[in-house]
Simulated assay, not measured.
Amino acid sequence: MNRQDINNSFEIIKILKKVLQEIPLTDNEKSTLDNWLQRDETNRTFFENLKDEETLADAIKELFPTNTDSQFKLVEKKIKQKRRIKLIRVAGIAASLVIAFGTGTWLYINHTNETHQTPVIALDDILPGSNKATIKLSTGQSINLDDHQGIRINDSGFSYDDGTSVLNTTNAEYATLITPRGGQYQITLSDGTKVWLNANSSLEYPLVFKGKQREVKLKGEGYFEVAHNPANPFIVKTDMQQIKVLGTVFNLRAYSEVQFTTLIRGSVAVRLNRSEIPEILKPGQQAIVEDHAVLVHKIDVNEYIGWKDGMITGTSVGLEDIGSDIENWYDVDFIYPRNFKNCEKAYINISKSEKLSSVLKAIENTYGVKAEIRGREVFIR
């Protein structure tokens, strides 16, 4: 099975799962599903017989058969592991590893239990992150924010969304909102632009926008709903690029030397700091900045904005990639063996409200590793 077949398989499975969960499909997903149903009578029969996620998990191995008997036995073993996990009710995460493709790619489907139980936290377990951040003013003043959903800038300073005053900003021109590992926060800027800041991130901004441009600086990851103002473009700067918008919705991930701009609505111009030629994105497109170059391609935007809605998500991602998101949200460090290499790829969809042990159980079953919590470190073997 080639890479395109794998990507198509992942896409169909995600769409079928959304149908079962009664989640509305995008226009692109509806078109993809219609084409898939019309392609083969077997596909239509499969779709009409689907009843629930368990049916989907058990049927996928027939829809997308593996290449060898040994792989099929491995699939059977993983499915049995999944059922054992479901029986012990691992805080709603019950991992379902249902198919091994010819390239060694695994699919992970998240099952949510209808019955919610209060989790019991072991002594060596770690709770998920929460709403927490710090504001630092250009005057040197700073304040730690309470566990509110967000803050906004008003005439006298900052207030929580419920109207409670937070901080007076007399004589300050700039401020920086900083989220630690294990924290996230939302802010409404003076022009009405809303920014959701992911864990281990910072946003520098003026308390009042002046001049012809509204300019902010981002480190880490932020989701932007920019207030429309054609006369004053909104500029987001990172250490590698600039994103120029008038009024739009996009996500910017800038943790490392590879940065991702994902456009949900509107239009943005992505330009390298040392370049004068921008790349213009359309909704559903993503710009990847790496090695002083910009690559634009079409993607499913939902896979890149799940963090804002309380999910850790990813399609065909490796352990170390998803591990970095887990590190940021749970404020832990993954410790890998020397020369560690894991070729498994997975579709991941995990609630950020789970305790760390439940997440690691799913990771173990998905990637075929063992994970042990020691303080704030997670040892992988």
Score class of each variant (00 low, 15 high):
Asp5Leu: 13
Glu11Cys: 06
Ile13Asn: 00
Ile15Val: 05
Leu16Met: 07
Leu16Tyr: 01
Leu20Val: 10
Ile23Val: 14
Pro24Glu: 15
Asp27Ala: 11
Lys30Cys: 13
Thr32Glu: 12
Leu33Ala: 07
Glu41Gly: 06
Arg44Pro: 05
Thr45Leu: 03
Phe46Gly: 02
Glu48Leu: 04
Thr55His: 14
Leu56Gln: 04
Glu62Cys: 08
Phe64Ile: 15
Thr66Gly: 14
Phe72His: 15
Leu74Lys: 15
Lys77Thr: 15
Lys80Ile: 12
Gln81Ser: 13
Arg83Gly: 07
Arg83Ala: 11
Val90Phe: 07
Ser96Ala: 14
Ile109Pro: 00
His116Cys: 09
Val120Pro: 02
Val120Asp: 04
Ile121Ala: 04
Ile121His: 03
Ala122Gln: 09
Ile126Gln: 01
Leu127Glu: 13
Leu127Ser: 14
Leu127Cys: 08
Asn131Glu: 11
Asn131Tyr: 10
Thr134Met: 05
Lys136Val: 13
Leu137Val: 04
Leu137Pro: 06
Ser138Arg: 05
Asn144Thr: 12
Leu145Cys: 06
His148Ile: 11
Gln149Arg: 15
Ile151Asp: 05
Ser156Ile: 11
Gly157Gln: 03
Gly163Glu: 10
Ala172Val: 05
Ala175Asn: 08
Thr176Asp: 08
Gly183Arg: 06
Tyr185Leu: 06
Thr188Glu: 09
Gly192Ser: 03
Gly192Cys: 03
Val195Gly: 09
Trp196Glu: 12
Ala199Pro: 10
Leu203Asp: 11
Pro206Trp: 04
Leu207Ile: 14
Leu207Asp: 09
Gly211Asp: 08
Arg214Ile: 07
Arg214Trp: 01
Leu218Arg: 04
Lys219Gly: 14
Ala227Arg: 02
His228Trp: 06
Phe234Trp: 06
Lys237Ser: 13
Gln242His: 08
Gln242Ile: 13
Thr248Tyr: 03
Val249Gly: 07
Phe250Trp: 03
Ile264His: 05
Val268Arg: 00
Pro278Thr: 02
Ile280Gly: 00
Pro283Met: 00
Gln286Ala: 10
Val289His: 02
Val294Ser: 00
Leu295Thr: 14
Val296Glu: 07
Glu303Val: 11
Tyr304Val: 08
Lys308Ile: 08
Gly310Ala: 09
Thr313Lys: 06
Gly314Trp: 00
Leu319Glu: 06
Ile326Met: 02
Ile326Asn: 04
Glu327Ser: 03
Asn328Arg: 15
Val332Gln: 07
Cys343Glu: 15
Glu344Ile: 15
Leu356Val: 01
Leu356Asp: 10
Ala362Glu: 08
Ala362His: 06
Glu364Leu: 00
Lys370Trp: 06
Ala371Trp: 01
Glu372Gln: 09
Ile373Tyr: 02
Arg374Gly: 07
Arg381Asn: 15
